[in-house]
Structure formats: structure tokens, C-alpha cells
Amino acid sequence: MKELTIVFTDAEWESLADLADAYGVPAAEFVRTAVRAHEAAEAARVRAAGEAYAAAHADLLRRLGE
């Protein structure tokens, strides 16, 4: 397991601590969950862009594959 140190302003830390408390989890777990959600959303966005590009250029891609 790797470790990362993140510096928060007092206001950011208070907000994070409040959110984590509301979800009943430690702040570190709340941050890990948020990072995983962001990674999943970014992967979905990139996948959708790739699929749209492939659909828009399907004929060219087919010809290049011949």
C-alpha cells in the first residue's frame, strides 16, 4: 500500500471532516472513495469519447483495417 500526504486549508479540512462524519467513515476512506469515483467517471468519459470517435469514423477505421 502506498501513502500520500495532502495538505488542506482549515476550511477544506473542516468540510472534509464534516462530510466523512456524515457518512460515518474516516476522512481517509471518504477521500479514497471520492478518488475512485472520480477515476470511474473519467474512465467512462474517455470511453464514451473513444466510442463516439470510432462510430463517427467507422468507415475509415474499417478501411484502415483491410
Rank of each mutant, 00 (worst) to 15 (best):
M1N: 10
M1S: 06
K2W: 05
K2T: 08
K2G: 05
E3P: 00
E3Q: 04
E3D: 04
L4R: 14
L4F: 11
T5K: 05
I6P: 01
I6Q: 04
I6V: 13
F8R: 10
F8T: 10
T9I: 07
A11C: 06
E12W: 00
W13G: 03
W13T: 00
E14T: 08
E14P: 02
S15D: 06
S15A: 03
L16S: 10
L16C: 12
A17P: 02
D18F: 01
L19K: 12
L19D: 07
A20N: 03
A20G: 03
A20Y: 00
A20F: 03
D21E: 15
D21I: 02
D21Y: 04
A22R: 15
Y23Q: 15
Y23S: 11
V25M: 09
P26T: 04
P26L: 00
A27M: 12
A27H: 01
A27N: 07
A28S: 15
E29L: 15
E29T: 15
F30Y: 14
F30E: 01
F30A: 12
V31I: 08
R32Y: 10
T33A: 07
T33S: 14
A34N: 09
A34V: 07
A34E: 13
V35R: 15
V35Y: 06
R36V: 09
A37H: 13
A37I: 12
E39M: 13
A40Y: 12
A40Q: 13
A40H: 09
A41V: 05
A41R: 11
A41L: 10
E42D: 14
E42A: 15
A43P: 00
R45C: 03
R45G: 00
V46P: 01
R47I: 07
R47C: 11
R47N: 06
A48D: 09
A49D: 14
G50Y: 06
G50Q: 09
E51F: 03
A52S: 11
A52T: 01
A52Y: 04
Y53P: 00
Y53M: 05
Y53I: 01
A54C: 10
A54F: 06
A56N: 11
H57S: 04
H57L: 05
A58S: 15
L61G: 13
R62H: 07
R63D: 01
R63A: 13
R63W: 05
R63K: 14
L64A: 09
L64V: 00
E66M: 10
E66N: 02
